[in-house]
Amino acid sequence: MGNREDLLEGAKRCLYERGYARTTARDIVAASGANLASIGYHYGSKEALLDAALIEAIGELSERWLQWSAADKADLAEVWDRILGEFDAHRPLLIAHVEAWAQVERSPELKERFAKFYADQLARGVESSRAKRPRLDAGTARALSAVTGALADGLIVQWLINPDQLPSGQEIAAGLRALADAIDEE
């Protein structure tokens, strides 16, 4: 790996160890083995490096979750239980993600990165939904992907606030079915 990749991996480690708001440039340098000037050279700023590291790390986690849901025999409740089971293992990263959300109003660059990230995630979800359910039209697949992403983000926030009240995969599946039934009755 070169300095650029070392910095990115070091920044990801810092997100897990120190979080988004508490990571300093010196922390990243210590974790990566690179020098301080290389942050500016390769990324422009510590914030841009942390943003790139956060989006890559969250993207990797999201991709794993998407693969679970796309499996041929994937049961909705089991997939959500599996995703929820990952929250503890990735707690520092999920906290860093929420910390970064709070910065988007003050950082046009971060807002733009998150907008692109969510657009890419949405497109990836549409592709996955249509591969698993070929009869879905593009608009419905987009809606499914958007709602699933919003549900995951909301569950992360609920879990951070009170993990004891987090619904199980079975409860999530039941709630989604009840919601679909209520919509069908309209």
Rank of each mutant, 00 (worst) to 15 (best):
N3Q: 07
R4Q: 11
R4M: 05
R4I: 06
R4P: 00
E5A: 05
D6W: 03
D6A: 09
Y16A: 10
E17I: 02
A21Q: 10
A21S: 08
A21C: 05
T24A: 04
T24V: 07
R26T: 14
G33H: 11
A34G: 12
A37I: 14
S38C: 05
I39D: 04
I39R: 00
G40F: 12
G44F: 04
G44D: 02
E47F: 13
L49N: 02
L50M: 15
D51H: 10
A52Q: 08
A53I: 09
A53C: 04
E60I: 00
S69H: 02
D75N: 09
L76S: 07
A77S: 14
A77G: 10
V79G: 06
R82F: 01
L84G: 11
E86T: 13
F87S: 04
D88S: 07
L94D: 06
H97F: 15
H97D: 15
H97S: 15
H97V: 14
E99D: 14
A100T: 07
A100K: 13
E112A: 15
F114W: 08
F117G: 08
A123E: 13
A123P: 01
A123Q: 10
A123I: 05
R124Q: 12
V126E: 13
E127V: 09
E127Y: 05
S129N: 14
S129R: 09
R130M: 10
A131K: 14
A131D: 09
R133H: 13
R135L: 04
A138M: 06
A138S: 09
A138Y: 07
A141N: 03
A141Y: 10
R142H: 02
A146C: 06
T148F: 08
T148N: 12
G149T: 03
G149Q: 14
A150R: 04
L151I: 07
D153V: 01
D153L: 01
V157D: 01
L160F: 00
N162F: 03
D164R: 10
I172H: 03
I172N: 05
A173C: 03
L176A: 12
R177G: 03
A178C: 06
A180N: 06
D181S: 13
A182V: 09
A182N: 12
I183T: 13
D184H: 12
D184N: 13
E185S: 12
E185D: 11
